[in-house]
Computed example of a mutant assay.
Amino acid sequence: MNRAWGTVLLAAGFEVGWVLGLGHADSWWTWGATVAAIAASFGLMIAAVRAIPAGTAYAVFAGCGTAGTALAEIVWLGAHADPVKLGLIALLAAGVVGLKWLSGSPQKEGEAR
Rank of each mutant, 00 (worst) to 15 (best):
A48L: 08
A81D: 09
I52G: 05
G6R: 05
A70F: 04
W76S: 08
P53R: 04
M45S: 01
W18Q: 02
I89H: 03
L77T: 06
G63M: 02
V16G: 01
G78E: 04
G63K: 00
A79Y: 08
G17I: 13
A33M: 14
V75Y: 05
R50M: 08
M1H: 12
L86H: 10
M45N: 03
H80W: 13
F14P: 05
M45C: 06
S105I: 15
A94M: 13
T34M: 10
H80M: 11
A93Y: 04
E109Q: 14
I74H: 02
F61C: 00
C64Y: 00
L99W: 06
G13I: 08
G43L: 04
V96A: 08
D82C: 09
Y58R: 02
V97F: 11
F14L: 13
L88M: 14
I38G: 03
M45V: 05
R113S: 13
S41W: 03
W29T: 15
A47R: 12
A62I: 13
A37G: 10
V97L: 15
W29E: 14
K100I: 08
L99Q: 09
E15D: 13
G65M: 00
L71C: 07
R3Q: 14
M45G: 00
L102E: 11
A72H: 02
G65H: 00
A39S: 07
A79H: 12
A72S: 12
E109K: 13
V75C: 07
G65P: 01
R50C: 05
Q107S: 12
A4R: 06
G98L: 13
A51V: 08
G110V: 09
H80D: 15
E111L: 11
G55V: 09
G68W: 00
P53A: 04
H80K: 12
N2V: 11
N2E: 12
V60Y: 01
G98C: 11
W76F: 15
L10P: 04
A47T: 12
G65L: 01
W31I: 13
T56I: 15
R50A: 11
F14T: 03
W5S: 07
R113A: 14
L20R: 07
A33G: 12
L9F: 13
T66Q: 02
L88A: 11
A59D: 02
S103P: 06
A72Q: 03
V60T: 04
R3L: 15
N2K: 08
K85G: 09
R50I: 02
A51H: 13
A48N: 03
A33V: 14
G17C: 15
A79V: 06
L20N: 10
A39Y: 03
L99T: 10
F42C: 08
G6E: 10
S105H: 14
L22P: 04
S105D: 14
W29F: 15
G68Q: 00
G17E: 09
